[in-house]
Nucleic acid binder design. Structure first.
Lengths: 214, 214
DNA sequence: TAGATTGTTAATCGATTAACAATC
DNA sequence: TAGATTGTTAATCGATTAACAATC
């Protein structure tokens, strides 16, 4: 199987922000929302919002905008957020525990069924309602729960070895919060989240403001 | 002052990954590292690595590659990571606490001097060695410590109001982990980190693998 | 020396933005 | 109706990739 490549990746990345705005409009009782409104809210160009929304297949009405309810459903469906996805968390440290408690993910169909850690003092307890098991039972746990998504928050040196266990256990995707580039089969979806990359951008902008850079 | 825009933003975002690899080489005792090696390690094209490294001003040697020590210094200097940056954290919840304990940031010059929260049971305590103060003292704290960076991890509904306090107190940059687009002056650097956007990408890739999407 | 790797210049690719007719 | 907003088609912009001479 060939490496998974997503067309319109930048557009897909913006969809959750749109969804957030549109849901607010829905709560406010609006039936329609225009691309112009969404764009203003997010400091984007209206044409970009229209192009992005087009990928969900939804059709807007000239003068009125997009039907709020249909748009929410269309975005959720496009992202697959209208279905529950079982996930396990591997590495229940600071970051991992924070992710287990991140409310928004539940809105997006992400359901943590189990977490795993090497720390004996954590095993048998729960974090944000999710039971913590021994790292030895990762494979068993994934198979039992048929988890498709593994969220990887172990220390970097353990990342590659852990990923191999996850793949063997049958997960189809890894959300990788370590700063290790994982070497796994091409049919495994890997999304790496790199906090340092955002901080790098902030740092460079900060220097620019201070006049250290042109 | 005009809005801050970064040239080569995608390159800047990749620099931390390069730095990580190059530091590993340094620890292994290597004096030179080639763009080809770095590219292989990260699944990138060698030409992209060379182009990216060029922005740091470092010059490589044909056949050998780039001098490891000089390259580490050059990247750190370009990012401003060779200087300590005082930062405050606002909102010491799950995610906020995790960030306070994130070791890697210390390597990057990010130094948390204080954290703030509304929860009375947290105030007066420390999280990962960082003292927690009342939200009422945010302005005072920022001024006392001359913090330039504020890391914003409050609940979304509080984000805008909190950001306004931060700006009034004199921070020059906000690292925004809420899903609210902040409305602040153009001279304030804002870097928004959106976990949902990465999850959106993962979700779409997952569907593609499962054949639900083309 | 031979050849791996560099930096530069040009080509390609993809994303954003502009222009505008269609329409509710 | 008048005009705000849509979807489409084309133009622009910027990032990635290719080609290749220079060189250690």
């Amino acid at each position: 199987m060939a490496k998974i490549k997503i067309a319109y990746a930048p557009s897909v990345r913006r969809l959750p922000s749109y969804l957030h705005i549109i849901r607010q409009a829905q709560r406010a009782g609006d039936y329609y929302i225009s691309g112009t409104i969404i764009a203003n809210e997010l400091n984007l160009e209206p044409i970009q919002v229209r192009k992005d929304l087009a990928i969900t297949g939804i059709i807007g009405k000239p003068k009125k905008g997009y039907p709020v309810e249909a748009l929410v459903k269309a975005i959720e469906h496009y992202l697959g957020w209208d279905e529950i996805h079982e996930a396990v968390l591997v590495g229940a440290g600071n970051l991992g525990s924070a992710l287990l408690g991140y409310q928004e993910f539940q809105l997006h169909g992400l359901h943590f069924v189990a977490a795993f850690d090497t720390d004996p003092s954590k095993i048998g307890k729960q974090v944000h309602g999710v039971p913590i098991f021994s790292m030895d039972s990762v494979e068993e746990g994934i198979k039992t729960y048929k988890a498709q998504i593994a969220v990887l928050t172990v220390p970097s040196p353990m990342a590659q070895a852990t990923a191999e266990i996850l793949v063997r256990a049958g997960v189809s995707s890894i959300w990788n919060f370590t700063n290790t580039k994982l070497k796994v089969g091409e049919d495994i979806v890997v999304q790496r989240e790199d906090l340092s990359s955002g901080y790098a951008l902030l740092s460079v902008m900060l220097q620019k403001v201070k006049g250290r850079l042109d």
